[in-house]
Structures are given as structure tokens and as C-alpha cells.
Amino acid sequence: MNDYALVNKEFFRALEAGELIGSKCLDCGEFSIPQREICPFCHSTNIEVVTFSGKGKLVAYTVISVPPVKMAQAGYDSKNPYCVGIVELAEGPRISAQILEMDLAHPEAIAIGTELVMTTIQREEDGVQKAYLAFKPA
């Protein structure tokens, strides 16, 4: 249990504080990230907000050379690509995040199953610095 409320925007407030939050269903025990007011597994509304350990492993990834507008604004392009992937948290649920400290010149060598730990990356969006979810090798 933590002090965050069970609404979507709290996920980003927690991220600014370096915390990764989600929810746990008190009826079936399943975790969700981002947090859900209705358990997607058993439809219970008996839910609490939890802070995850931030440990996980890589289950899928890509190295992007053609970025969308906001990533281009942050300085990424074909000469400066970035890795984004799906991370399975130690507690079970999965989330999309930027993956840092990978060998971007050899994307085929990035290993599914790599142990990761949560961090954040500051990116500028419309002139404002914001914390985004990222993971790096543990």
C-alpha cells in the first residue's frame, strides 16, 4: 500500500518521484500496470495501489530509426536510434518502456530475457522536461 490514488494520472506523478506503481486485486491476487479500478481478471473492485520492485526482464524489443514527432524532438533519428521494448515485471505484469544501455549498432545481439531494472529518462516535450519510464540492465 502507498499514498497514490487509483487513477491513471497518479502513475506519472509516481514516475516523477522515481516510483513504479500499479494495482493488486485483493480478491484474485493479480497485479496490473498501469493500475486498474476494475480487475481485468476477475472484475473485482477490491483493489489497492502497489509500488513495484522495479525488477523485470525483457520479453520483446525493437530499435527504432524512424521516430515519431516527440522522439524526434528529443533528438532521435536514423543516426541516433533508440531501443523500446516490453518488460515483464518480477511481480508478473508487463509494460512498454524505453530500454537504455543496449548495443544499438547490433540489435540482433540484444537478448530477450535480459534482466532489467527500472529507471526514468528525462525527455523534453513541448519545452518541458518530463520523466518517462525506462529500464536498464540490472
Binding site: 527504432i64 515519431p68 518517462y132
Partner: peptide
């Protein structure tokens, strides 16, 4: 939750 991570449509299918 997906696009701010940096995903694009080619990126989803690439993953």
C-alpha cells in the same frame, strides 16, 4: 502508456 515509451506502429510489429 505505449506511445510515450517511444513505440511506433512498425515498432509494435517489430517487437
Amino acid at each position: 502508456f505505449e506511445i510515450p515509451a517511444g513505440f511506433t506502429f512498425p515498432g509494435f510489429y517489430a517487437a
